[in-house]
């Protein structure tokens, strides 16, 4: 593996982590969706580069799926959804942005300190990739728990899934079937969540999940 191959792979995976941080920082839904599209684009590029350097043509299909669904169709659909719901002005981060960012940094440090010693036997590329992928997964989770809005929780969930795909492609030889099934399950989750969003909206006039808790009689 040449020096360039490694550096580019490193760059693209690092880009995903960076975009994850960007997503944590967004406080408007539209810009959040745009950033998510960028995230998916970075994923598509990273996967395509893996396909190139691993001589694994089926990974190109993965990259294409990521590009088509995650970078285009899902952001577009979510755009439409937000327009129809009329909630394009809402985003309320739960914790302060600064604290969230610091937490995110700690998570990245944690995932690197966990992954690098554990995968000592694996190749350098896979090690770095796995560390980045775990960071993306953890940042996605962090996003899910720091947002109140159901749409941004969906976005957090899908960025988490992007991290999983990054890990899978870096680790050489994830079967295409698995990948496609993962992609479809994400799509179905997206559809289901979309339907629920409408239902929630119809009933409560808001997609703030706190309304659900209030409805259940929770004192917060």
């Amino acid at each position: 593996m040449s020096r360039l191959d490694f550096d580019v792979a490193h760059l693209l995976a690092g880009l995903m982590v960076l975009v994850s941080f960007l997503m944590l920082y967004q406080d408007r839904l539209y810009s959040l969706l745009n950033t998510f599209a960028l995230h998916a684009l970075a994923l598509a590029l990273a996967v395509a580069w893996q396909a190139q350097i691993q001589d694994a043509p089926h990974l190109y299909i993965t990259a294409a799926i990521a590009l088509l669904f995650k970078a285009m169709i899902i952001p577009y659909a979510l755009h439409r959804l937000i327009q129809r719901l009329g909630i394009h002005r809402e985003v309320e981060p739960v914790a302060g942005l600064g604290i969230t960012m610091v937490l995110g940094l700690a998570l990245v440090a944690l995932s690197i300190s966990v992954m690098l010693p554990v995968t000592a036997a694996a190749g350098t590329l896979a090690r770095e990739d796995l560390a980045f992928a775990l960071s993306v997964v953890l940042l996605g989770l962090l996003m899910m728990i720091t947002r109140r809005n159901a749409v941004s929780q969906v976005v957090g969930f899908m960025s988490l899934e992007n991290g999983l795909i990054l890990a899978a492609t870096g680790a050489r030889g994830m079967p295409l079937v698995v990948e496609i099934s993962v992609a479809f399950s994400i799509l179905i989750a997206f559809i289901v969540i979309g339907i629920f969003l409408f239902r929630i909206r119809e009933r409560f006039d808001t997609v703030d999940v706190a309304a659900l808790d209030r409805f259940r009689g929770d004192r917060r």
């Binding site: 739960v94 966990v114 953890l138 989770l141 899910m144 728990i145 109140r148 706190a210 808790d213």
Partner: peptide, 21 residues
Amino acid sequence: TIRKYLSLVFAALVLLLVLLA
């Protein structure tokens, strides 16, 4: 709430990772 459940899962995951580290 859903978010608190998610936070629990997240905290457990992070705790295990810290232990591993």
